[in-house]
């Protein structure tokens, strides 16, 4: 059974075999970034757009040397942006940086303590970016109404949080996520808050189309090992979702035949 192979995740018209998207931040070095990304089996990887260090050794390896855009779909993010203007500016720079590449991860943050999204600024930025031809994957709160609004604006994927970024708390509101998934016509990916493999599996069992994570892998004691665990959890969760879980019952139901017992 290769349900996960024959069951691609389609984002902006492009099929992907992997439903695990990974971030590239917080790793020890670029080697670990590469090894963890490979172990995760990720095909889409997020990157940040930042000022380069003037005067830095130009021979130093670059992130895109170890994760080449020819092999990976690079998903530039707007992390660290607190206004729609800054987020749009960052996306335009990313498009120039990546030779006209239009797929972006939009996140507009509202508060440094929680890193919760500022949904008003997020909506504004999404409208502008869609109008400018960007393919927007949008990070948002786990609010079903807002998720629908972002889909209607034209975002190619909606990515509600499971819990605050980097918190590792796991899925805090599975009923909201379920509501979002059931109403969506675009892929729904859990973005942020996953702590360990079972969290990722739960997201997939709820019917989410994928999971985006960074800290849960990069912050593990053994990031490469955790990346592999996450890959399996995503696949297991997806297959369980497709297979259909049994209904929950309060009382037992014997697995072995009742007839023909000895005595």
């Amino acid at each position: 059974m290769t349900a996960t192979l024959s069951d691609p995740l389609v984002i902006a018209g492009k099929p992907y075999r992997s439903r695990l998207l990974t971030g590239t931040g917080k790793f020890k070095d670029l080697d670990e970034t590469r090894l963890a990304t490979e172990a995760a089996g990720a095909e889409i990887v997020t990157v940040a757009i930042r000022r380069s260090n003037i005067g830095q050794d130009p021979g130093q390896p670059n992130l895109l040397d170890v994760l080449p855009p020819a092999r990976y779909t690079i998903l530039p993010n707007t992390a660290g942006c607190y206004t729609a203007d800054d987020a749009v500016r960052t996306c335009r720079l990313a498009r120039e940086l990546l030779d006209g590449h239009s797929l972006v991860k939009l996140e507009v943050l509202g508060d440094q303590r929680t890193l919760f999204p500022d949904v008003v600024q997020t909506l504004q930025a999404a409208e502008t970016l869609v109008r400018e031809g960007f393919k927007v994957m949008v990070y948002t709160s786990d609010d079903p109404i807002l998720a629908k609004r972002l889909e209607e604006i034209g975002c190619v994927a909606v990515m509600p949080l499971a819990a605050p970024i980097g918190s590792g708390l796991g899925i805090q509101n599975r009923w909201n996520l379920l509501e979002i998934v059931e109403n969506a016509k675009v892929p729904i990916l859990v973005d942020a808050g996953v702590g360990t493999a079972s969290d990722a599996a739960v997201a997939m069992e709820l019917g989410c189309d994928g999971v985006l994570m960074n800290t849960a892998i990069a912050g593990a004691r053994q990031p490469v090992l955790m990346a592999g665990a996450m890959r399996k959890a995503i696949e297991a969760g997806r297959e369980a979702f497709l297979a259909g879980r049994i209904p929950r019952k309060r009382y037992a139901s014997a697995s072995s035949p009742i007839d023909g017992t000895i005595g």
Partner: peptide
């Protein structure tokens, strides 16, 4: 990129050079 050769800097210009780096 196609205009880098022909763009001349003026005093006081605010130039930003950005690249991709690790992020989530």
């Amino acid at each position: 990129r196609s205009a880098h050769e022909t763009t001349r800097l003026q005093p006081g210009d605010r130039v930003e050079i950005v690249h991709a780096m690790g992020g989530g």
